[in-house]
């Protein structure tokens, strides 16, 4: 089992600089937690950035230096405690989450059962757009849709397909207005994903088109 889909170099660099949008940063961070390849990529990007950024100097006046040093030395050594492990619960199932998403397991506003065999739990991140955990039971699917903005999806557990490709645990998927897809899963254990959206989805086929006027309620 190997992760095939990763954030691009540009996405990773912006993330490493702290310049990516907060929701995007969070989902990239969760991917990095799951992906040894991207952990190495991150380490390399950060090393290059550090070299670039910490070469130039802007000296401080001596007195200011002395004052600051004295103030720092007067602070006590901090003790840090390891974080507790939280699980995401749905219907008696427990899902382990990547480190970066741990804190949000307890912050969901409950699961709601959507059409088909879909479950959705919104995570209130206070970001522009929205973030959700979405669980598809075996045989579950999301009606065919495209995107007005960007949809970033990270497979947390299980696998799914969307007519374009097959995605496995750890895969990081970017979709925009050029992608029309209808995700579904046939895996016995279903599929749990984390998704970050900056604009509502746009449903493109059959009866699901009727959802469009309400798409601000459904996945937005």
């Amino acid at each position: 089992m190997k992760i095939k889909l990763h954030p691009s170099d540009q996405q990773l660099t912006l993330f490493a600089q702290g310049q990516a949008a907060p929701g995007e940063s969070l989902i990239i961070s969760a991917h990095v937690d799951m992906c040894p390849v991207c952990q190495k990529r991150m380490a390399n990007v950060e090393m290059a950035l550090a070299e670039q950024v910490l070469t130039e100097q802007s000296p401080l006046p001596d007195r200011q230096m002395q004052d600051m040093l004295a103030q720092i030395l007067a602070t006590p050594q901090a003790s840090t405690t390891p974080a507790e492990v939280h699980y995401l619960e749905l219907d008696g199932k427990h899902f382990a989450l990547p480190r970066s998403l741990q804190r949000y397991a307890s912050k969901i506003n409950g699961w709601s059962h959507m059409v088909g065999k879909l479950w959705q739990a919104r995570v209130d991140l206070g970001i522009h757009g929205r973030a959700d955990f979405i669980y598809m039971e075996k045989g579950g699917s999301v009606p065919e849709h495209t995107h007005r903005g960007h949809e970033l999806t990270l497979v947390l557990d299980g696998e799914f397909s969307d007519g374009k490709g097959h995605y496995d645990t750890g895969d990081f998927i970017c979709c925009d207005g050029q992608h029309t897809h209808s995700p579904r899963t046939d895996a016995d254990e279903g599929c749990l994903v984390f998704s970050v959206l900056d604009q509502p989805l746009h449903f493109t086929s059959g009866l699901a088109r009727l959802l469009n006027p309400f798409s601000h309620l459904f996945f937005k």
Partner: peptide
């Protein structure tokens, strides 16, 4: 936003083995 730097980059977190992962 309720997203802080410690969530995104575990630079200052105590490193422990994550049994859940």
């Amino acid at each position: 936003e309720d997203i802080c730097a410690d969530d995104l980059w575990p630079v200052l977190c105590e490193q422990t083995a994550d049994l859940a992962q």
